[in-house]
Each structure stands twice: as C-alpha cells, then as structure tokens.
Nucleic acid binder design. Structure first.
Lengths: 328, 328
DNA sequence: GTGAAAGCGCTAACAG
DNA sequence: CTGTTAGCGCTTTCAC
C-alpha cells in the first residue's frame, strides 16, 4: 500500500534493480523494452501507487499537456457550456485545462496568458476581450485557438465563431413576424460578437423596411449596471414593442426590469438560448449557439496544431451555425 | 522586446554578470540583496519580458501554488457560482486553480485526485461523490477542504456545508403555509446533502402534523432521466399539491415536465436559488445557498492549512446558513 | 551581499 | 533490449 511517501521513478528503479531509464520507458510502454520487464515494472508501479510527476515530465519534454482557457466569466451560461465541452474533449485527449476569468479586462487577460506561459501550457483557447491585445508577441510560438470573438490578429490563429449577424437577423425577423414594428436593442460593445449582432439587427430592419432609429440602440456596460434602465427607457419612454438583447447576460438583466415593472405587450428576443428560457413568464425568442461543438472543435483544432503542426495548415476562420428557438 | 526566445534566470544572469542565485533572490525580493542590484535586475527582467517558469519553481519548492477543485459538474449553477468564487479568492491569494468534473463518478474522482497529485497541487477543494472514497491514502499529506457534501473521513478534513436539513425544512414549511398538504419530494441519493435535505423535508411534515407517505418520496438518477416521469407521477397520479426538489438540476428537469404538461395548482419549492427563478411562470420558493461565501471560505481554510499549518488547528465542520426566497 | 553547487523527477540522446 | 549521462529552470543550503 502506498504510504505517505511519494513513489518516484528512482524508487521503482531501486526496488527492481533496473535503471531509471528503463522504468520510464516501461511506464510509457515503449516498444524498446522486453515485455516481461514491462509487465513486472507496471505491476509494481500499480502496487505502490506510482503516479508520474507531471511537472517534471513537462519540464523535460517542454510541454505540459495542459490547455489554458481564457474567458470573460465562467458564470455566464454561454461560457459555462463551452468550458464544460472543452474540459470533456480535453480530458478525452489526455489534456488538462486551466480556466481563467478576465471579466473583459484586457490587463487581466494579458496577465493570465503570461502566467499560463509559466505553466508551459501546450496551447490556449481564448475568448478575446475588446480585440485589444496584440497576441503575437505574448503568445510567441504557443498555439492558440480563438473562440466567440475575433482576435486582433486576424488570420494568424484558428478562430471559431458563430454566424452572429445571421443569428441576430433571424431573431429580429422573428420578432417582426410576431408583429413588432419598433424594436429596441441592447448590445455589447466589448466584443466583436456584439458588433456583428448589432449589424444583423440592422440588416433585419432593412430587409423589412423598418426605419433605423439610433436612439433605440443601446450598449450594456460590463457589469450590466445600465441594462435595467435602458430596458424601461426603451419599453416605456421610447414605446418600443420589441426588444432584442444581444447576449444572455443582457437578457437576464433586462428580465429583472421587465419582471419588476411587470412590463408586457412587447416581443422579446435574445442571442444565446438556455433550456430554462422555456419556463419564463415572458416568452423569449432566442438563438441557440452550438456551445458543445464550439468547445469540442476548439480543442480538436488546438491539439492538432500542438501534436501535428504540419497537418494543421493555415489558420482558419470557421463560422458555426446557430439555431432559432421561437417562443411566444 | 521579448522575441520568441524564452527568457530564463540563467539568461538574466548572463546578461547582468551576476549569479543565478542572486537573480532568483532579486526577483523574489529577498532582503539579502543590495537594493541597487535588485532594481537593476528587476528592471531588466521587465524589459525582457521575463516570467518565471512555475513548473520549475514548483518542482524545486515542492508545491505548486495550485488548488485542485473537484466537483460533479461545472454546468450545475450551484457549482458554477462556487467555482467562480473559488477562482476569485484563489487568484487574490496568488493561487491558480484546476477544476475537474466527476459527474458523480467515484472512479473519475479518484483518477482526478491522483492526476492532480502529479501536478503537485498544494491542496484540494472537493465536493465528494457518494461518500465512496477513503481519502486518507489518496490524499496523503495534501491538505483538503470538503464542500457541499460530507466526506467519508469525517473529522479528518475541514468541511464546509450548509444547513441542509434546516433549509429544506424552511422551504417545505413555506409550501405548507402556502396551503400545500400533500408534498411530493424528489431528492438526490448521490450526496449527503440530498439525504440531509430529505430529513429536513420529513421534519417539516412532522412539525406540521402531516403524515409521511413513502410513495411520494423519489430519488433522481445522476442524469435526471427519471425526474420528468416522477414529476407527473407525483403531481397527477399521486395528486400532490406540492413538490419539493432537492437541488437545482432536479428543479429544472421537473420544470420541463411542468411546462410541457402545463401542470398547475400546486406549490413548488426547491433547494438552490438562482436570480432567474424570478422570471419563471410557475413560482418557486427556494433557498439560496451562500455560494460565494462557501467558495471564498473554502480557499481561505485551505490556504491557511497550506501556508500556516500550525495555525489551522483541528479540522472543523462548518455549517453556513441558507436564505429562504419566497415566491408565489 | 553574492556565488557555487546540488537537486526536485523526469526523459532523451547516445552507447553498448 | 538496457544503462549512463545530462539537463529542463528554479531555489536553497553552504560558503566566503
């Protein structure tokens, strides 16, 4: 039985009488070790509860089989779902993940990347904040895949986005089909996704020959402090009969105001969908992002770049499709 | 400017002409280095974009300033919130976190712990699955704090729970006050929390002289596959006029059935609360767990054990209080 | 106040 | 098929 004393390769070497190198090879199932030796060593390792020191291995091999994941906020349901998918796929491929929240702060993002470089992460998956950073010098040779938002360095890294403009357009079209004629919007200015979704909103108005009124276009702050005020402003003062919120955090903040003031008689739409939107009092037409696919493919793209850089080709920009969920 | 070449201590030593030891001391702000030397070295380090190799440091110092966090599922809103709090407090104390999902699988939990030992984590925060594991031999000397569920090894580790029985009792009492007389319950059998909440449910019935009917006590499976069926069974066949779900995953699954079948005329209660429960069609009376406090204090307890083991005293069992949110 | 040297645990040449 | 040796980058005695 394993006592509190840590079992190392040299310990195994002592006990078996073979060299550390052979132990290492046997544990890594190298073909260059006799099967009987391998068996004996692996059996002993199991008995003694040997577990490799990943840090030592990482130092030696110069890569840690760890993926650094940088997002704005794990508590945002979109990222929760993406991160869960990343963790699952990474685990499947024998990678570990370290997740850092930036709260949309570029300084935090930068520090996170540098800190994770110190962990010798094999690669990054990043939801970039405000396009602000110049990633090339910070990332160096470390592979990275960008998700959700376009990074500053277009074309230098694999990038996995959804069709934001199209999704937003679908939602707004649906609101119009439901009878809305004056649709306010609250979008986000910190990400490229917010900008694209706003463009989709505008395109839908144009397609439906509705006039564009800049005074009913609003932008949330990062903490969503102003969203409630914007919501009542749009729905009461501005007499909107529709509201489009450009992500789920904005939607939830808007719903607070809608619920508190018992606002009715308007159509609600949102980017991002969650199963529990089904239970809402005020029906919300929303687009479901392919969060699982995004997380899974991000890991696949990244590990391909890490493990077979020659197979990876030039960096790609992929747009995944979203799915409209009509309600109300 | 930092080119792609990695800056190490030996690099700094070469450039400045002092020894590696001095560089190391200067970067760690040791008092044993002349101030002018320190300034010079720190300035150069910043210029060249030096960042310490955490792995090398961890190996040398025998601890990684990393916390292993083991939970069942980050997508469960309760854990999302706790984990966010853990990450924030850990970052504040200069610790990094690695989160692993077990999906309530004891084998996965065990592997996760062993794997993280290989990362030389400084400590663990664990939401234990099914009380199944004997933690002493796996954890060895690594400090650990248990959250949400009682671990097998009572008394060996700091443990941070909420007052589950009391919280459940409060909810059920509220349902009774709202007029419910026959309250079905769907709890969870995989965690001690589920058992305690069931006990609270029973206590509330007893206090109110309602009879206990074992046939309206159900247990969800891990994937919540059976919850919808139980829900309609309880609310239709069993003619319950109240339903208590023992965690938020169960609640959401039950809400699916309630919404799909448009079930009405009953009182709904739950353990766990989320702000967006406010927006639900069917009002749900729920207890809010102190997720932030739980995460924050878990990190504090753990880092105390890591950094000042002599101050930490004997392992404590703490019960945090929950907060009833009445709706409907 | 600074330097020399050892070593954490592992793997990868290179020999044989 | 197996052993010897070196070294990843860092910290930490022990000298001076």
């Amino acid at each position: 039985m394993a006592d509190s004393h840590k079992i190392t390769i040299s310990e195994l070497a002592k006990r078996t009488g073979v060299s550390e190198a052979t132990i290492s090879r046997a544990l890594n199932d190298s073909p260059r070790v006799k099967q009987t030796t391998k068996d004996k060593i692996q059996k002993l390792a199991k008995e003694l509860g040997y577990h490799p020191n990943i840090l030592a291995r990482s130092m030696r091999t110069n890569q840690s089989k760890t993926i650094g994941v940088i997002i704005s906020n794990i508590a945002n349901a979109f990222f929760t779902s993406v991160v869960r998918a990343i963790e699952d796929e990474a685990a499947k491929l024998n990678y570990c993940t370290i997740v850092i929240n930036t709260d949309e702060n570029p300084g935090t993002e930068r520090n996170a990347i540098e800190m994770l470089q110190g962990y010798m992460v094999s690669g990054f998956i990043i939801a970039s904040t405000r396009r602000g950073l110049d990633y090339k010098p910070i990332l160096g040779n470390t592979p990275a895949v960008f998700i959700d938002r376009m990074p500053n360095n277009d074309g230098d890294y694999d990038t996995l986005l959804v069709n934001n403009a199209d999704g937003a357009k679908q939602v707004v079209n649906a609101l119009i089909a439901q009878g809305a004629t004056r649709i306010g919007v609250i979008s986000s200015s910190v990400s490229t996704a917010g900008q694209e979704r706003l463009a989709g909103y505008k395109a839908a108005l144009q397609d439906n020959r509705l006039s564009l009124d800049e005074s009913i276009i609003k932008f949330s702050d990062v903490q969503m402090k102003n969203v409630r005020q914007y919501t009542s402003n749009l729905l009461i003062n501005q007499a909107c009969d529709g509201l489009f919120t450009a992500d789920n955090a904005i939607l939830l903040a808007a719903m607070e105001e809608i619920t508190a003031r018992k606002l009715t008689g308007f159509k609600l739409g949102a980017f991002d969908n969650e199963p529990w939107f089904d239970f809402f009092n005020t029906p919300v037409t929303a687009v479901q992002q392919p969060t699982i696919e995004m997380g899974t493919r991000a890991v696949q793209l990244l590990t391909t770049r890490i493990d077979q850089p020659e197979d990876a080709g030039v960096p790609e920009l992929l747009r995944l499709t979203v799915n409209l969920v009509k309600r109300g």
